[in-house]
Design a protein around this nucleic acid. Sequence first.
DNA 1: ATCTTTATTTAGACATATCTAAAATAATAT
DNA 2: ATATTATTTTAGATATGTCTAAATAAAGAT
Lengths: 220, 220
Amino acid sequence: MYSQAEENYLKTIYALEREYGNEVSTNLIANKIKTKASSVTDMLKKLALKKLVIYKKYQGVYLTEPGRLTALRVIRKHRLWECFLVQKLNFKWDEVHDIAEQLEHVKSELLISKLDAFLRFPKLDPHGDPIPDEQGRIIKRQTMSIVEMKIGASGTLVGVKDSSETFLKYLNKKNLGLGDKVKVIDIEPYDNSYHIETKTHRLVITSNVAENLLIKNVKR
Amino acid sequence: MYSQAEENYLKTIYALEREYGNEVSTNLIANKIKTKASSVTDMLKKLALKKLVIYKKYQGVYLTEPGRLTALRVIRKHRLWECFLVQKLNFKWDEVHDIAEQLEHVKSELLISKLDAFLRFPKLDPHGDPIPDEQGRIIKRQTMSIVEMKIGASGTLVGVKDSSETFLKYLNKKNLGLGDKVKVIDIEPYDNSYHIETKTHRLVITSNVAENLLIKNVKR
DNA sequence: ATCTTTATTTAGACATATCTAAAATAATAT
DNA sequence: ATATTATTTTAGATATGTCTAAATAAAGAT
């Protein structure tokens, strides 16, 4: 079994590989998990010894197959627990991340398969992220970030890249939630802000925010 | 917030105080949590510094009021999670202890109060142990161990002192469970074994087993 | 009352995971 | 091509929680 620290590194490397391509740098990891580059180096050596990552000095890391599967198992647990917290305990989608970060490290295969069944085998977590199955298979959804959309294009908000409490609370305040239809009305070249429209209102968001909103079924 | 190790020590000291009286020795703790006496001494010093226990060299320890409340909070979490595992996820009563040992350390007051509500505020866990409330109040039940009963006395099995998987699996095999009516038929002086009778069958148990069975409403 | 045994504590070591500061390497700029 | 800057690694320190072995204290036996 792996330690919580090890699991967190694997999970982070997995996410960064998806986001930035397959070779992940020390500093990227350090920033993501708010630690120092030297700590990251230490851990990468350890993970490499355990054959969970391929690590070459000064060249970054990437996950091996066992490393990837371990990461996916942790992600599966995290997302299932988030479903539980929202669906069963009535947590809001912006309250569950930190608690799931703790629950994801509980060791028991049986627990997670029973939890999965209890929740009726959900396919997506409360933030629209797909839940890997027991074999680590994960569906890849056809989504694009708002920054990739052209003026006049519209679609449905089905996910967020950033699940932090701050970002989600911002969305709540702006009355944006999963399932909302959104349309890009205008892109202001001066500051790269996006003017978007939902069923109920219009609003202006920064490109930073637009980047974190995932849209499905984009038309026009 | 306290570490998992600290929480485990507090919980253990609380249980040993109940079992053996208010001054708990270093070795008693060491045996209970399967560690070395020297490790216990180290931790007791740390807990004493944090005012969670009163510790005097060579004299054992006991919990302070804050220590007792912290222990009870951990116990509350442990028992609520056990209820969840059995009632909602269909675990057997002999499978939940080790998982609850992990879940009890998850930090979130909100989580535990929501879990409590979800379970409809249970008063007892699957092993018959009372669940402390948010203020650390815990009901004291009128029970006695079978070893305290006389020949001919009978009552209802409502709890066990040992919640380990091995002990509970033994009870399953012997077809003994909570709610069963039991009567002491005979006590063999030679080996101190107890002959007991339930609604459905008779069996012989060692005094060790008898010690761990808690009976309510003892008559005659 | 002294000796022996048992329990407890101390001293020093180790593993994990982190950090700071300095050194080494890679990337960038001129 | 060399100098500057940024990134990464190494070396050594720290905190937590554990251990072994030795020293000390308490309890029990004669």
